[in-house]
């Protein structure tokens, strides 16, 4: 069995090399040629080689997060997370048809990675130490931060220091909720099921503010004229790409890919096409090769 599979890999690599040689010779389009050439460069047996050979990748992302991963009527998710996943897929030589999108919500991201249901997760996935014990993280590719959204007519909340004694709405069981409970003991936390459910109680005066990652709040502020984001972000939420635990080869390769995307402007391009429509374009973050 082992012999046969080694033989198969050898055969595939040879054919890949031949193919790349061919396409390099007579193909006028540079892009496919380059990506096919990449396939041959991957070390044998690595996750990159496996994905590239299969020509398929399964990406876990959010389906309900405006600006980052939001599924439109056509069923294809749009957003910055989605563009980042596309950059990685194209560097593996996988085209649009080879990417299958799978919805991951905050509670099931680790489980999906561990069970192999998804190859990578790009889903506003904050890197933290507890999660690092379960999965590996490449990136970060973006630094978000928790911020505050309130009515434009509110005068007594200008930043995180004004939250004492106020009612702040967030999502039950989310990281922002945990932050509020740990760092704002005088604030009354009002947990709902989703962030959009916080908006009506905010307008009715039943809560004073909504708090979560600034990128989510910016989406709401852009869609609703009566709402605005106040103050500077008061936490750091580095968004990373989740992959299988201890797949260091794959992690290093994604980190290299991200750095290349930072350098050649494709990261900025992806940002400006999605979240950049309502948020200023930031400097690319420094990749954390832990």
């Amino acid at each position: 069995m082992r012999l046969r599979s080694t033989g198969l890999i050898a055969l595939l690599s040879v054919s890949a090399l031949t193919l790349s040689a061919c396409s390099g010779g007579d193909d006028t389009e540079p892009e496919p040629a380059a990506s096919t050439a990449d396939v041959a460069e991957f070390p044998e047996g690595s996750t990159m080689a496996k994905l590239a050979e299969a020509g398929k990748i399964t990406v876990g992302t959010k389906f309900d997060q405006p600006l980052f991963g939001l599924v439109g009527p056509d069923g294809v998710p749009e957003g910055f997370d989605v563009e980042i996943a596309r950059i990685i897929a194209s560097n593996l030589g996988i085209d649009e048809d080879g990417i299958s999108w799978k919805e991951t919500v905050s509670a099931n991201r680790e489980t999906f990675i561990k069970s192999g249901d998804v190859d990578i997760v790009v889903a506003t996935y904050t890197i933290n130490d507890k999660r690092k014990a379960e999965v590996s993280f490449a990136g970060p590719y973006y630094l978000a931060g928790q911020s505050i959204l309130t009515l434009t007519t509110t005068t007594d909340i200008e930043g995180p220091d004004d939250l004492a004694g106020k009612k702040v709405c967030t999502v039950a069981g989310s990281t922002p909720e945990a932050n509020l409970l740990a760092n704002f003991p005088d604030t009354e936390v009002v947990p709902f099921g989703t962030y959009s459910e916080c908006l009506e109680p905010l307008r009715n005066g039943q809560v004073d503010a909504v708090s979560t990652d600034n990128v989510i709040l910016a989406g709401f502020a852009a869609d609703n004229e009566d709402l605005e984001v106040r103050g500077e972000p008061f936490t750091e939420e580095p968004y990373g790409i989740g992959l299988g635990l201890e797949d260091d080869e794959f992690r290093t390769w994604i980190n290299d890919t991200l750095e290349a995307a930072f350098a050649d402007g494709s990261w900025t391009e992806a940002w400006e096409a999605t979240a950049g429509t309502v948020l200023p374009t930031p400097e690319p973050p420094a990749v954390d090769r832990y």
Binding site: K130, T175, E197
Partner: peptide
């Protein structure tokens, strides 16, 4: 009620699940 601003057993469970992703 966990989804409607009441921190009862289920909502406490969700908080604990976030704090302990390995032991959901």
């Amino acid at each position: 009620a966990a989804g409607f601003a009441t921190v009862e057993l289920m909502a406490s469970g969700r908080r604990l699940a976030t704090a302990n992703p390995a032991d959901t």
